[in-house]
Design a protein around this nucleic acid. Structure first.
Lengths: 205, 205
DNA sequence: CTGCCATTTGTCAGTGACTGCCTATATGCT
DNA sequence: AGCATATAGGCAGTCACTGACAAATGGCAG
């Protein structure tokens, strides 16, 4: 179907991803129909025609059934480069724009279903936050030599928080606004610092 | 012992807080001795001489045994005021400084124990992140009329991320640096925006 | 085509967090 | 003291998650 990245994926790996997508679809269906908490792993397994043990082997936790994304293995290097420059945001903007224009059709619909569940189920949002934090830490560690340790961590975490904030806003407003615009706005806030009001009408200093 | 805030606390409330502190102490002891995962709620209950059911009633979840803090009911209004001003950070700085100078002696030691566990156990950190996010959202909702919805959320979440980042850094470096300095530095990063390098020696623009 | 090996999937039994329900007990108030 | 109410404990059950072992599947050499 989608040609993930032209990368040399083994036959086995493809089958596994296909199975995971089938299981995730079944899970999303059930979660949307009955609510996350009211669905047991056993029910998901049954719907996807695998054993519960297999679901656990693939996804590890129930929350991961929502979070998982076949692109989970993000290329780290471009992001690290973006952050390492003296102003990280513009590079980041580029990367995110690219990520979003590549998202379309079935992919996009799937992402929206997942986002609705992420921001509708606290436990899932917490898991996502945890993963985002781990990811941020990896990046911050790479960037630390350039910006300093504390600054790097604060910067990276703030930016990730901004990105997730934009996603959250996008999701909870029914995806009406352009995600790229929202991302841009969020990054603007962080780029210009907190001292600048949104427009000229509120200046005090 | 500590005179929480001179507030009109009922006798009942005091006893409950005392009991919770006793249970939390027992839990922290066990978590430090054997590791968070290796301690069952039953063991905590036994050590604190209450029933497991009572531990659940008081704390709800195992993670909360670490997270809980007798000041959890934070006064919202001063923070809201801080955020609502055109530059939220300076007000925030004041509030945090006050919070930290009030932290001393037994209080401080307890906080450090808790922080070590928070940042040493992913599950606990995730729970804290969840609570911080919920808290951020409440503040952002209050602030939205002033700064706009998206901007408010991004701002508040970034600031909270910055504060937690400073705490994390403080904790994982064995509390050697001054927490107030770290907080100041973290807030500086966010206040000035991401375009400014830490010092003059790295300018690329 | 067939038997062999490795990888994958399923089965089973167990642990422990967490909840609802009901009973017992303790506490504040008159 | 005596009553009403809030609070602690006991009990049974659900479900996420794990480790160990058995079954099956699929690629591959002979």
């Amino acid at each position: 179907m989608t040609e993930h990245r032209g990368e040399p994926l083994g036959l086995r790996a493809r089958k596994k991803i296909a199975a995971m997508e089938r299981i995730q679809d079944a899970a999303l269906d059930l979660f949307e129909a009955r609510g996350f908490d009211a669905v047991t792993i056993e029910a998901v397994a049954e719907a996807a025609e695998v054993s519960p043990r297999t679901v656990y082997r693939y996804f590890g936790t129930k929350e991961m059934l929502v979070i998982w994304d076949e692109f989970d293995e993000v290329e780290l290097s471009p992001l690290v480069d973006a952050f390492a420059s003296s102003d990280p945001i513009d590079g980041l903007r580029q990367g995110l724009h690219l990520g979003f224009v590549n998202l379309e059709g079935e992919q996009l619909r799937r992402s929206k279903r997942r986002l609705r569940l992420v921001y509708g189920v606290p436990a899932v949002e917490a898991t996502l936050a945890l993963h985002a934090a781990a990811f941020s830490r990896r990046i911050a560690a790479h960037v630390a030599p350039v910006h300093g340790e504390l600054r790097s961590h604060v910067l990276v975490h703030a930016l990730v928080a901004g990105i997730l904030g934009a996603m959250r806003h996008w999701t909870l407003n029914d995806f009406k606004e352009s995600p790229i615009d929202l991302l841009d706005q969020a990054l603007d806030v962080l780029q210009h610092g907190t001292g600048t009001p949104p427009d000229e009408s509120e200046r005090h200093e």
